[in-house]
Design a binder for these strands. Structure first.
Lengths: 342, 342
DNA sequence: CTACGTCATGGTAGCGCTACCATCTGCTTC
DNA sequence: GAAGCAGATGGTAGCGCTACCATGACGTAG
């Protein structure tokens, strides 16, 4: 005569309660909820009535345990305050908001080690999909992704060797296009200014370098970088450094828009004419670049779209319909504005 | 002779495997992992060795089901791209990164309905704590929070009637302090410009109004708002509207820094002298306000600290040590800068 | 010396759900 | 008319873990 453990769950209705009330087996309730087309019209209605009456909500933990699969998307980004990733996240959230998937977000702080730790935490939970920023995972992270047993989408960049799927664009090409534009506009001593040189920044720099070399304009002294996290403040300081180092500087390609804004403000403060004396190009094309005075040339990147697309691909894969092409390049767009209109 | 279901888990080691290898009972392994002090030194070592050798990681879903408690913090914010919430999130993440808690983030899009939906999704999972932005929950949301059976922290604002705990500051006082500062600096026709008038913006506006009325300067035509989401672009447009409506405008208190930046750029573009002809005050004090030219007066808000503090309070409550005072006001700071230095 | 705590450990019975297989009905096929 | 089959439904047995209670060893008090 064992008395039941008095509902350690705290008394909320379970699937058995619904089944009893609807006069069916528990498994039929389960099916009615997850695959309604496999239950007759009649029972479906009865079950729905019981669910509504009891206010039944399935326990996601029990579900995850029984099916060895949690309705969770694991998302790993290197930064929460960088508005670039915020936009990607927004795309992810918007695409998932009318599904029953929950989102578990991890912040890697641009650290491979932290990424490994987070994957280790996410893995045992058996997420439905993983979305990770970047394509330069450590070998350990890569193995964790490969053995995660769920669709994986690497976002922000494209590359030759996806773990599973990829959505992004070429940062190298972006850097090159920005630089070629400045050369075309007549700038010659074009500096590169970059903070927190993560792999994507490195590739933009490589694109810059390729363009400068092709034009016979490359000079290592034109490059000013720091591992410090990016900020508008830092943009100003790096620009000062760059100008001190190369007084003949006549343009800057900034690793991102924060930096570009810092440069712009410093030009105002020091009464340096933009675009006449100094041309400025940013990267990402944040909303404010168009409004700035003068408006700032930038590379528009498809951040929101990357988020949406990554979810679409993951959902397709979950549904067993893997996309034909696992690597999607969403491209970018050069926005020519006043800051380079010499 | 029922053959076991061939490990639908996919063959990763379970607590039983560890127990067998260590020559102890499963429950002892469970204890060694969660409350090491209750297991003898000897066994603890043996168990640790077995765990390491097998690479055992507890299944969080099974854990959650058995203990009716998931190691998850549910976090609800109204926007992912608003850098204010990004900073709060950063504080939350930094405070939780060396615990075993996972974070499930929901985006309410400033919608009460969406908030209800998300709480409905988070609840059945039995999170360890809930952190929600704002204090103006709908009655339904409020009940969901009250019956969540876990610590709840409302963040961003303080108010008289916490569901459980609160961390924030007074937006009314912030709005009033900013406005009083401008009055003190000699501005008289001070406009209020605000986008997406969420409850916090409303209270800043109320603070502005209180200060203006106290000084006998209030005029309803000075107020320009819109429900449209905030952006730098919008700041410019609203400023144009405001100026068209009240050509004698000599200052603006902006609902947030994005708007302020838009105003600043428009002043540059239209050759309006700042702070001489128009004074500008923002709200939040984003990094760039100090670097802008001219630098922009703003109300510094303790966003990161709000995130940290909310987690600290939640963790204390989980540990059974509820803070003496459930409502914490972290205050704000007026940063006087060039944009109001008439 | 016995009664009685205390501590370390273990066994059992679920937590609430779903995978798997069995059963049953009704219909088609030859 | 028997065999075969598809579709709807249900029963059973877990998923991997922890709550609860039992047990045994030991020490301490009376």
């Amino acid at each position: 005569m064992t008395k039941p453990r008095s509902r350690r769950g705290g008394g909320r209705p379970t699937i058995a309660d619904v089944a009893r009330k609807a006069g069916v087996g528990a498994i039929t309730v389960s099916r009615a909820l997850r695959a309604p087309e496999r239950v007759s019209e009649d029972l479906r209605r009865q079950i729905q009535a019981a669910v509504d009456e009891l206010g039944y909500l399935p326990d996601p933990n029990a579900r995850a345990l029984a099916s060895a699969r949690a309705e969770v998307f694991g998302v790993l980004v290197p930064s929460l305050t960088n508005s670039v990733f915020a936009e990607v996240l927004r795309g992810i959230y918007d695409s998932l908001s009318d599904s029953s998937f929950r989102i578990q977000l991890g912040n890697t702080h641009y650290s491979g080690l932290e990424e490994e730790r987070l994957l280790q935490v996410f893995g045992p939970q058996r997420p439905a999909a993983l979305i990770v920023a970047g394509i330069d995972q450590t070998p350990i992270s890569r193995r964790l992704l490969e053995t995660a047993g769920c669709p994986v989408v690497q976002v922000m960049e494209t590359g030759p060797d996806p773990v599973d799927m990829m959505v992004g664009f070429s940062h190298f090409d972006g850097g090159r296009a920005a630089t070629e534009h400045m050369i075309e506009m007549g700038y010659r001593r074009i500096g590169f200014i970059g903070a927190r040189m993560d792999p994507r920044s490195q590739r933009r720099l490589a694109g810059y370098r390729a363009a400068m070399e092709a034009a016979g304009l490359f000079d290592a002294r034109l490059i000013t970088t720091t591992p410090v996290p990016s900020s508008v403040t830092l943009g100003r300081e790096l620009f000062r450094d760059a100008l001190a180092k190369v007084p003949t500087l006549d343009g800057v390609f900034c690793n991102n828009d924060d930096i570009a804004l810092g440069v712009l403000f410093e030009c105002h403060r020091a009464s340096i004419a933009v675009p006449k004396t100094i041309g400025i190009t940013g990267f990402n094309d944040l909303d404010m670049m168009e409004v700035a005075f003068p408006s700032v040339t930038s590379i528009r990147t498809p951040r929101y779209e990357i988020g949406r697309r990554s979810v679409a691909m993951a959902l397709a894969a979950i549904a067993g319909k893997r996309p034909q092409e696992p690597v999607v390049d969403l491209g970018f767009e050069l926005k020519r504005r006043e800051s380079t209109a010499r």
